[in-house]
């Protein structure tokens, strides 16, 4: 043991790191950190690719009863959940008599959206996102994608939903 070490207090021997060494980040360390971030982003992209290709989200299977048509007035809405899933959906009876069903989660940050009666628009109150109630397309605001839609079927007075047909993003227009 050298003489210098003996003169130092015990805590310095236990924690032999200088203040500048602990607070200063050198450019060399910063470059290494950037490389680490780069690796993390590549890993994130790998996760997205694997999830998209091998574990796609399950689609709604079959037809599901939602409610009686008379329970929803013109311009009214009804929230529902499909059996076997916990994704919230919103059923809308537009003023012109058309029925629409969309996922109630905004495609921006998953806030609950609502239909603004009379405007033909679905609104996300969190960041002022607007969707077209007829098609689910984004009209304004930060949402990057249209709202995922379900197809609405009317069987007499009963309202059913099922997965939207492939290549057919928009709901079939049904009038009562």
């Amino acid at each position: 043991m050298s003489d210098q070490t003996e003169k130092e207090p015990n805590w310095k021997q236990d924690f032999p790191i200088e203040r500048t060494q602990s607070t200063k980040v050198s450019r060399r360390d910063f470059a290494r950190f950037l490389c680490l971030v780069s690796g993390g982003l590549a890993a994130g992209s790998a996760y997205v690719a694997v999830k998209a290709n091998f574990f796609p989200p399950e689609e709604v299977k079959g037809e599901h009863f939602v409610c009686k048509a008379m329970e929803v007035p013109l311009g009214g809405t009804r929230s529902f959940v499909v059996e076997g899933s916990n994704i919230p959906y919103i059923l809308i009876r537009l003023e012109d008599g058309n029925w629409r069903a969309y996922e109630q989660k905004c495609t921006h940050l998953s806030c609950a959206v609502y239909y603004k009666p009379g405007s033909g628009q679905i609104v996300c109150p969190c960041h002022e996102g607007f969707f077209d109630a007829m098609t689910g397309e984004v009209l304004a605001g930060p949402p990057p994608r249209p709202l995922p839609a379900l197809e609405v079927l009317l069987n007499g007075d009963d309202v059913y939903v099922k997965a939207a047909s492939p290549g057919h993003n928009k709901n079939i227009t049904l009038k009562t």
């Binding site: 780069s38 590549a42 790998a46 690719a49």
Partner: peptide
Amino acid sequence: IALPAFIASLVLF
């Protein structure tokens, strides 16, 4: 898009 995006990201890393 996911797979080409991952490959490009890996090359950049």
